[in-house]
Design a protein around this nucleic acid. Structure first.
Lengths: 230, 230
DNA sequence: CAAGCCAATATTGTTGACAATCTACTGTAT
DNA sequence: ATACAGTAGATTGTCAACAATATTGGCTTG
């Protein structure tokens, strides 16, 4: 019979996405990539035209972005991309500190052997990264995020994964771009801390893993604060 | 001249609210009050008619509710009120535990004398509540929330206030209704724990306050788990 | 010249109609 | 009787026009 096989691109979910969902993803990327700059005003008609849909779906996408605190809206006035203060960055790190600490504690309780192997491989990759190239500045941001992400996923707490991955991390990414924070400036030290955290988790010591992760993030926060105040 | 004086209800801000914002609040209340029952399907046309607006603003309100994880939507299928599992309730308490712990630590650092007085007065009110009426079941839910809310507000962390107050607490309220958890079953014990937490905060001992709050919530979680599994 | 009002314009909020998709029902063949 | 295909109905997604509100610029007045 005809019509059984679908076009190739319809095998991927993004082809059947609604306009609202598609434009949301496009705007999200635009914000996180810096294409839409913090503080700039958003014109609904113009944006809708640029993304090839009417204002209805665009407004639904804006509503979603507002829920993620990536834009601010005021009735009858309009929306603008958030522009974040030092204070808010500190607040974000404080929350991240306790939530990722929780993730570590839970990961230590729940991590499977398979996930532990994945963790070991990831750290080996990072180690080679630091040994091979002497260019320490290129400590992989995504790789680092992979470390944190792996632990969060291993926590077996779906709500926590959503809170951190879907809500806090995009904000963090935006902050980093806005403050031109390219990531770790002492990659060897960071890697060492990662090693200790991983060790605690693999041994199943959740309380230690939580403490270490909290100190790890608190240190990054203090470093950031120091940079911002000077 | 005629028409200067507006009807009384227009003196309040909700009169100038957009239809989208108004319907969002109405739906939020409907969900939290149990008027819209968990798992039930939402019909856009019907709901819009019932709340006196068209589907546009209604859909924006639904998008916002979805961001709070109070409803689930599927493209071309529709939205339904979330129905939550024991597992998710546990996850929620785990997150609440560390976030409110953080709130206590920060509150101990930042609380003003004025806020400390407010805290003392609140606890006095609770004490009288327990002493006067022998009906210990009536430990005020809102009053308890007031205790936690006061601490969260005192943390001076706006993002934390948003995460807990706007996102986690509505979910918690929904859970409580769904599982018919009417609140503390050992109000004297809870009050005693509140006293200790408050004492640590007033003394400025953030670390102790954090530990006590975490234990306080962890205890509630374990009690809940025990009830659910029996 | 500054401050404040007023109209013209631009932008956001809302609506009802139309298109796309899913759901439920009926009829048919095995 | 059951399983399946097809169709009619219901529901969601999208659009373009209209209403309500804010912003801009010019004008008047002190």
């Amino acid at each position: 019979m005809d019509g059984i096989h679908k076009p190739a691109d319809q095998l991927f979910e993004n082809s059947k996405q609604t306009a609202s969902a598609r434009i949301f993803n496009e705007l999200l990327q635009a914000i996180l990539s810096g294409q839409l700059i913090p503080g700039s005003k958003i014109n609904e008609a113009e944006l809708a035209a640029r993304h090839g849909c009417s204002r209805g779906p665009l407004r639904e996408a804006l509503q979603r972005l507002e829920g993620l605190h990536l834009i601010l809206r005021e009735a009858h006035v309009g929306a603008r991309v958030v522009s974040l203060s030092d204070q808010q960055l500190t607040e974000l790190y404080q929350i991240r500190e306790v939530l990722e600490g929780l993730a570590c504690r839970l990961a230590a309780q729940h991590m499977t052997e398979r996930a532990k192997d994945e963790l070991r491989r990831l750290l080996d990759t990072h180690r080679r990264y630091l040994e091979d190239g002497g260019h320490q500045k290129y400590y992989p941001q995504s790789g680092d995020l992979d470390f944190h992400y792996l632990l969060i996923r291993s926590s077996q707490n779906a709500l926590l994964l959503r809170q951190l991955g879907d809500e806090l991390y995009p904000l963090l990414q935006l902050y980093r771009r806005q403050f031109r924070d390219s990531g770790y400036q002492q990659p060897q030290l960071a890697f060492k801390e990662h090693l200790h955290i991983a060790e605690a988790i693999i041994e199943g010591d959740g309380e230690l893993a939580e403490i270490l992760m909290r100190k790890h993030i608190a240190r990054a926060r203090k470093r950031l604060k120091h940079i911002l105040t000077t």
